[in-house]
């Protein structure tokens, strides 16, 4: 009986590990999509609204779900704080402290990081160029993320279950 419960537990652990990995593959393109939407909103705030960066990021954070909500909110709070941090410092700091909560990989982080160097420091036309460049890069990442999802999501799920089963068989 005890053996049976143990086997069930191993099987469950294997399955949930597989599910978790699969979720990451499913979450990445979704979050990239959200990030692209956020940058598009930022572009609109800058080009039509003339909204200062801290206000714009704050507004966007309100429309976003976690984990991007916290990332944008923190960047905006850092900018409003009278700590003499530049826009670049604030964005980079927000990325550093929040990135591990996202399902996105380093390629997306680099795009956002790169954008951080340029946000707020030039005229509107320039800002739009930087933002649309970042959006393009993210879109190509999104395509590869979707590929990965199609390829690995199902595989991870079954692999989790199967490896659980393998361990159970070996123990029996």
């Amino acid at each position: 009986m005890l053996k049976f419960i143990g086997a069930a537990l191993i099987l469950l652990a294997g399955t949930s590990a597989g599910m978790l990995k699969a979720q990451q593959f499913a979450g990445r393109p979704k979050q990239i999509r959200d990030l692209i939407l956020a940058l598009k909103r930022l572009g609109t705030e800058i080009s039509y609204g003339f909204t200062p960066l801290p206000d714009a990021l704050n507004r966007i954070s309100k429309q976003m779900k976690e984990p991007l909500h916290t990332l944008f909110l923190q960047a905006s709070q850092l900018m409003n704080h009278p700590s003499q941090m530049t826009a670049q410092d604030c964005i980079h700091e927000a990325i550093r402290s929040n990135w591990h909560n996202t399902a996105m990989k380093s390629a997306e982080r680099d795009v956002l990081y790169q954008l951080g160097y340029n946000l707020g420091v030039s005229d509107r036309q320039d800002q739009m160029n930087y933002i649309s460049l970042a959006i393009q890069q993210l879109q190509s990442e999104e395509v590869s993320a979707r590929d990965d999802q199609a390829r690995y999501e199902k595989m991870c799920k079954s692999l989790g279950l199967l490896s659980g089963a393998l361990v159970v068989i070996l123990i029996y």
Binding site: I46, F50, T51, P52, L53, P54, M79, Q84, T86, A87, Q88, C90, L119, G120, V121, S122, D123, R124, D126, Q127
Partner: peptide
């Protein structure tokens, strides 16, 4: 200089077109 410009423009140089 860059830092000063960032701080005096509230991190948003693009809102300062008229001022520039």
């Amino acid at each position: 200089g860059h830092k000063l410009l960032d701080l005096i423009t509230n991190h948003s140089l693009y809102t300062m077109e008229e001022e520039l």
